[in-house]
């Protein structure tokens, strides 16, 4: 545990010592804020539902995918490029500790990036209260929406670390993570090409979009939760195996 904490702290150091991280966080906050403002403005007169306003727009999830892809670039690709990976792998630490510390580092940055999002609906509720509009805040969909955001973040960062451990360069990692994560959001659209109910159900179960829709309505379904946790665990396991493979097949 102690070794994991030391490695995790170092990962955070790597992220927060880089100016690129602050630029990334600023852009993410600005774009998600802009999207929220625009959607809120367009929904004037419609029933007030802050969870849908926040988590509904496709641009919001596009920013989440981009954020994950950019973070993944800094996980293993950078370490490989600089040679730090050899320094770390020859220290008395296990591959699991390395993978988990990198994952925890990425999840921490993800959480920091998402933290300002909590303020948007609160700010909106305060403004409505100040202008005398009925607040009508439904807290449950907001809470379940944030739960979905956290769990989706766990899955996307899991995919990020897996791609980073398999793919060689930073650019390949960014592209790989972006494509894989985007697919998870749109794969249910493939249901239009089939009439097979099993296929349609499977695609809907795999896709993140229908489950997120449910969560933002306040519906908590345990099936996607189990699927997301399992997917994350699989990605971490595969990343650890990829590290072993990296050692075995390393060429000079």
């Amino acid at each position: 545990m102690r070794t994991f904490l030391i490695l995790w702290a170092r990962e955070l150091g790597v992220f927060f010592h880089a100016a690129a991280t602050y630029i990334m966080l600023a852009v993410f906050t600005a774009v998600t804020g802009l999207v929220f403002w625009k959607v809120t403005e367009e929904s004037i007169g419609a029933p007030f539902d802050p969870a849908v306003l926040l988590f509904g727009p496709v641009y919001f999830w596009l920013m989440i995918v981009i954020l994950t892809a950019v973070m993944a670039m800094r996980l293993f690709a950078e370490d490989r490029r600089t040679g730090i990976l050899e320094t770390v792998l020859t220290a008395p630490v296990t591959d699991w500790q390395i993978v988990l510390a990198k994952y925890a580092g990425a999840m921490t940055v993800f959480a920091v990036a998402c933290l300002p999002l909590v303020g948007y609906p609160l700010l909106l509720a305060a403004l409505r209260r100040a202008t005398g509009s009925p607040t009508g805040m439904q807290w449950a969909p907001l809470i379940t929406g944030f739960l979905a955001l956290f769990l989706c973040g766990a899955v996307l960062n899991g995919i990020g670390i897996l791609c980073a451990s398999i793919l060689k360069g930073p650019v390949a990692t960014v592209i790989g993570v972006f494509v894989a994560c985007s697919l998870l959001f749109v794969i249910d659209q493939a249901a239009v090409v089939t009439e097979n109910m099993h296929a349609i159900q499977t695609l809907n179960a795999i896709s993140l979009t229908p489950a997120i829709r449910d969560f933002t309505r306040g519906i908590v379904d345990t099936r996607p939760i189990v699927l997301w946790i399992s997917t994350t665990a699989f990605c971490l396991f595969a990343a650890q195996r990829a590290l072993l493979l990296h050692r075995a097949t390393r060429r000079y």
Partner: peptide
């Protein structure tokens, strides 16, 4: 162990 191409964290 000191590898041939020893890499360090440049930010530290």
């Amino acid at each position: 162990y000191l590898p041939e191409q020893f890499a360090l964290y440049r930010d530290m």
